[in-house]
Design a protein around this nucleic acid. Structure first.
Length: 199
DNA sequence: TTCCGGATTACCT
DNA sequence: GGTAATCCGGAAA
């Protein structure tokens, strides 16, 4: 099973990459087992975009965004959740694609276990496992300490494989949960997919 | 040094 | 539909 390589991540500008990642599959091989899901919703964050964490300058927190394409950027949000991004564009530019939702394909039981461990109850529908950026980070077992600044390439345990199907339509809208740059059409999702976080 | 608000989620009404 | 939970970076002073 081939994974997306450096050439792929370097080939497209950030907005195009955010589109190209739709339909591909995010896979994590952890000691507990494999979890995987099809990427159904993304958002692009550009270097000249005030909503982007790299908009001002490089800091310890956002340093991974300035790494080479195909790197992973994980950050803490609202003091309690984490989100995951795929770094894009040239090294040093500070652009990335936020993964906002997955359609679970492998390791559903493990996903349920991880999500329940972080929250009070234990009953999740499959739809609730990965239909939000912080939810999928929990379900996939992605962590700040373990994955921020790492690569999706070579033999990394976290990686992406190409789409098996591309027979879907993409909806383009404004991004969720931001105030600055709120009018920019930088959010993309698979039309009609029930695992998307919001309509 | 202090203060504010955020690329969110879950739970309550 | 409204809001608490909960930490940190950046702006203000």
């Amino acid at each position: 099973m081939q994974r997306l390589d450096l050439h792929f991540y370097q080939k497209y500008d950030t907005l195009t990459l955010a589109n190209r990642l739709l339909g591909s599959e995010l896979v994590h091989d952890s000691p507990e087992g494999r979890t995987a899901g099809i990427i159904v919703e993304t958002e692009a964050y550009l270097t000249d975009d005030p909503a982007c964490h790299a908009y001002r300058k490089q800091t310890t927190r956002n340093a991974a965004m300035f790494g080479p394409a195909g790197s992973v950027y994980v950050y803490l949000i609202y003091g309690m959740y984490h989100c995951v991004n795929i770094v894009s564009a040239e090294e040093g530019k500070g652009e990335a694609v936020l993964i906002r939702a997955l359609e679970p394909t492998e390791g559903i039981g493990l996903m349920e276990k991880r999500r329940a461990a972080r929250k009070g109850h234990g009953n999740f529908t499959i739809r609730e496992l990965c239909n939000g950026p912080a939810k999928l980070v929990q379900a996939m077992g992605i962590t700040l300490a373990g994955h921020n600044g790492t690569s999706l390439l070579d033999d990394a345990s976290l990686f992406i494989i190409p789409p098996k199907h591309t027979d879907f339509e993409v909806v383009t809208t404004t991004r969720i949960g931001i105030t600055q740059g709120a009018d920019l059409p930088y959010r993309f999702y698979i039309k009609g997919n029930r695992f998307v976080s919001k309509r």
